[in-house]
Design a protein around this nucleic acid. Structure first.
Length: 356
DNA sequence: CGCATTTGACCTGCGC
DNA sequence: GCGCAGGTCAAATGCG
């Protein structure tokens, strides 16, 4: 039983959060309040029949904001914004590792485990414990076919400073997620492989890894495949094992370089108008075209995109080996203060958000 | 003694 | 309307 304060969100804050202040997430935050958080909490005491002694505030622990299921009417003075759509961006990283969990420099606490339907391997749920209230969560699961592959899915952005060791992963995921969010809901056309690749390269320009964006569901997901860099070859189901943590770290570090991207994306790369169009299109087309659709497609639809992106890539590839990271770093994980300039700050999320 | 993990129960959303 | 699958909580247990 972790201290109640564990999750800053608890108590008083909850209110704040629900309102929409959420936390000072720098880049893209997943403001989407968790859609369904449990109801178990309050229910729980009931279930437990308060054998012990139900604390006065039954939802103290709720690091989650109010458990408002987004459908519930009323409740807050503030109706759920944007239809509370869960624009959760997820970034999953596939990597070979013998370890149960790849080390990304962060501290995690396991809070649950479940068996997935078609996978003999259980899926574990972790929450970042480096800071109270950090909204970041991750799921770790081994690939059903190749158990040497660990699939780690990150969700959310850290709201606290990260140790250098954690930067690569954090930056990468933040960048990828940011990109996704900026792109807004992907439409369903699979013909954008080209665009997809483009995007992939954007994320991991230095490695031949593959980044796929899938829209199979409520939340868009970017998948970074770091299993191995086989140039121009589909990774066979049983490639050679590569139990090299260092390798992974290196790959991540590499991938992290593009931290500058998110910022670029965050800018007004896309006009709202354009975005609407895209969304409309997306709506028109049922997303059943497969789940590997890509936001890239959407993004690519903007004539300016290629140019901008290309420039960005060049820019950081060219001159950002390390120092660049610092600057970029801010984009991702660091909780930049108030950022006065924030004005525009903009939250890229805002862009994606507008719905109608 | 305190903390992290384990494990079973329950909730929510979605599909049939 | 019912059932399924995914996700989260929280009490209990084990370990350092």
């Amino acid at each position: 039983m972790p201290p109640p304060v564990d999750y800053c969100a608890g108590k008083g804050n909850a209110a704040t959060i629900s309102s929409k202040d959420v936390m000072p997430l720098p880049t893209f935050d997943h403001h989407h309040h968790h859609h369904h958080h449990r109801g178990g909490a309050h229910e729980r005491d009931q279930r437990g029949s308060s054998p012990e002694d139900p604390p006065p505030h039954h939802m103290t622990q709720g690091w989650l904001p109010s458990k408002v299921p987004k459908f519930l009417p009323a409740m807050g003075p503030e109706p759920v914004p944007e239809a509370a759509t869960m624009r959760k961006a997820r970034v999953s990283v596939r990597a070979r590792s013998e370890a149960a969990m790849i080390s990304d420099g962060c501290q995690w606490r396991k809070y649950g485990q479940k068996m997935a339907k078609g996978n003999p391997c259980p899926r574990a749920y972790y929450r970042c414990t480096m800071a109270a209230g950090c909204p970041v969560r991750k799921q770790v699961q081994r690939c059903a076919e190749d158990t040497t592959v660990v699939i780690t899915t990150y969700e959310g952005n850290h709201n606290h400073p990260l140790p250098p060791a954690a930067m690569p992963m954090a930056s990468t995921t933040a960048a990828a997620a940011s990109m996704l969010l900026s792109g807004s809901m992907p439409s369903a056309d699979g013909s954008l492989m080209a665009g997809s690749n483009f995007l992939a390269r954007a994320v991991l320009p230095c490695s031949s890894n593959v980044a796929t964006i899938s829209a199979s569901a409520p939340f868009p997901t970017v998948t970074l495949d770091l299993t191995q860099p086989p140039p121009g070859a589909q990774p066979p189901p049983q490639p050679q094992p590569r139990p090299d943590p260092a390798q992974l770290q290196a790959a991540l570090a590499d991938a992290a370089r593009p931290v500058a991207l998110p910022q670029l994306f965050g800018q007004k790369l896309y006009d709202p108008s354009k975005l609407s169009a895209v969304q409309a299109a997306a709506k028109a087309a049922p997303a059943d075209a497969g789940d590997t659709v890509s936001a890239a497609a959407v993004i690519a639809s903007d004539p300016n995109f290629p140019a901008v992106l290309a420039a960005a890539i060049k820019s950081y590839i060219g001159g950002s080996s390390s120092s660049g990271a610092g600057a970029g770093g801010s984009s991702g994980t660091v909780p930049p203060p108030p950022a006065s300039s924030g004005g525009d700050s903009s939250r890229d999320d805002k862009i994606g958000e507008q719905d109608s």
